[in-house]
């Protein structure tokens, strides 16, 4: 008997034309085709989407939360990357 578990897939759904695909959850399926069919039944029973992406979970590489400070903190002291950093005269409107 084959006791193998079906692979895990991550599901991304575009809720409306013009918006990004957004992660909604995961499910098990034997291949991409079945993953899309199952995603349709599990995640779009009430017209939540117009397009589905599925990616096998093992193909996703994530950053390590322990690295968060070395990855993101350096951006913290670079206020000059934001428009409000610059002091401009009040007469100058709409810039």
């Amino acid at each position: 008997m084959n006791n193998k578990e079906w692979p895990l897939w991550e599901v991304f759904i575009r809720s409306r034309q013009g918006l990004d695909h957004k992660h909604v959850g995961s499910l098990h399926a034997v291949d991409a085709e079945m993953a899309i069919e199952n995603a349709r039944d599990v995640y779009t029973r009430r017209m939540e989407g117009v397009s589905i992406w599925v990616v096998e979970s093992k193909s996703i590489h994530a950053s390590n939360p322990d690295d968060a400070s070395s990855l993101y903190d350096p951006a913290n002291d670079k206020a000059y990357r934001h428009p409000t950093f610059y002091e401009l005269p009040d007469e100058l409107r709409h810039m």
């Binding site: 008997m1 084959n2 193998k4 079906w6 034997v30 291949d31 079945m34």
Partner: peptide, 9 residues
């Protein structure tokens, strides 16, 4: 069914 689906894939 689960086994057949894996074999088919």
């Amino acid at each position: 069914v689960r086994e057949a689906a894996i074999a088919h894939a």
